[in-house]
Nucleic acid binder design. Structure first.
Lengths: 253, 253
DNA sequence: GTCTATACATAGATAGAC
DNA sequence: GTCTATCTATGTATAGAC
């Protein structure tokens, strides 16, 4: 992950990825080198992810996060200052893993493999961190007030860079003609919809909630969709070894 | 009611045989049969759609809606009772137009035409009512507290019904094998992403905001994606006869 | 470092004049 | 039917005891 140039922002913005230097406090009776701080911050961030995802920024109260983290409310203010500070720390954490998945698009790779790996990565994230996806989606829907700079710089640059790779694949006849930018929008949409709109998907599928099998079905469907869109040969489905390869339309309702 | 001796009227129902001295119509100078009510409710709902979309349910204040509608805050409570009442009225309004688009999937139609019409309908909605889409997306992301019943009944039934149509198309060899339910999820995702996540799309495309041309590009991309996924012949693009490529990556077929 | 008690602001809702 | 003034609840944030 290349660390971009330090975009000097005024208002109390702090780089989240280096909380290394500590040892600043004067009296630390039994200081364990900021270990409790590390643990508590992580505990708070995990609680915050769930609460912010469920209620949105304004719907979230510090009280609710405190209860989810089983810590007193004032503790959150001690560690993160303000509610917005906590929210930004959480967003930074989520965004960190967002751009890395692009690494699959290397010019010398087989397009089919690159797309398959990318989709599987995104769906893995959807399965493992659905709350994180919701926090991010909520932030974008409401205008991306806190991440617009990131979108216009780091994300855009990264997408443009990989759009060239895909355009080259098209030019060299390795895949069908597709608009690379809109292809990315589609990839994000079809994968993240299973995290962000999970209750809608579950409701339509008549399930109480989405299970592992549902997300495997979804992954296979998306792989087909992407490979066919790009005119690439379809690979084997994701499902386990015991169940035979299924290519037909199977849905359990 | 300025008339003296006002009997305590609890509910809206009142005995008919009771003589009521209501000849006094001072409070109704020129009653237009609820016409002003109709107008004001519509005015409030339009304002509410914009504010709820931007701030979410909890982030929205009745004050903000009142200012957007240029009406006193108490007026909203007079017409809709509570904030939640107003929100539900708004959601119902949005959902009304949501299910109708399914009508394009008729068994005797050509699949390619049905999908193309459906996609164009959804994208038209995305262009004309992006705020409505955001309100709905926000509601789903946060657990669909107010619409879960609708999702599990009306929407599910409608999707199941149309999934059969698509499954029949597959069986009769009219289109490639695709899971109908997941295909719908994908259709919703790729179309609504241009309304819900418009700021992200605009940021990546280096545009201040999404324009008509961007959405035309998106529509053409989605049409290609859907038709290829379903193994259907690609129809002509949406745009006019002579449109130049936008970013140089576009290819005409 | 931790947490109780509280200050201060703003929200939703309504009473009552017009 | 309309709107001003106000009540009450709740939220963020912090001061200060431990």
């Amino acid at each position: 992950m290349p660390r971009g140039g330090a975009t000097a922002q005024k208002s109390g913005e702090e780089p989240q990825d280096q909380i290394r230097p500590l040892a600043d406090v004067s009296a630390l009776p039994r200081s364990n080198g900021g270990r409790t701080r590390q643990l508590n911050e992580d505990r708070i961030l995990r609680a915050a992810e769930a609460v912010f995802a469920e209620a949105g920024f304004n719907g979230t109260t510090m009280q609710a996060i405190a209860e989810a983290a089983r810590l007193p409310k004032a503790n959150l203010h001690y560690y993160f200052g303000t509610k917005e500070g906590l929210y930004r720390a959480l967003l930074n954490r989520v965004l960190d893993g967002w751009v890395d998945a692009f690494d699959h698009f290397q010019p010398d790779r087989e397009p089919a493999d690159a797309f398959a790996d990318y989709v599987r990565d995104k769906m893995r994230f959807t399965r493992q961190r659905p709350m994180a996806s919701k926090v991010f989606a909520n932030e974008i829907i409401h205008g991306a007030q806190h991440v617009s700079h990131y979108l216009k710089t780091k994300l855009r640059d990264r997408v443009d860079e990989k759009a060239v790779v895909i355009a080259d694949w098209v030019k060299s006849g390795k895949m069908a003609s597709v608009d690379p930018h809109h292809l990315f929008f589609s990839l994000w949409a079809v994968t993240q919809t299973y995290a962000d709109f999970d209750v809608q998907v579950a409701a339509v599928l008549a399930k109480p909630k989405l299970g592992r099998e549902d997300l495997d079905d979804a992954t296979n469907h998306i792989l087909r969709l992407v490979l066919r869109t790009c005119g690439l040969p379809e690979t084997r489905p994701e499902t386990g070894p015991e169940t035979g390869p299924e290519t037909g339309i199977e849905h359990h309702t």
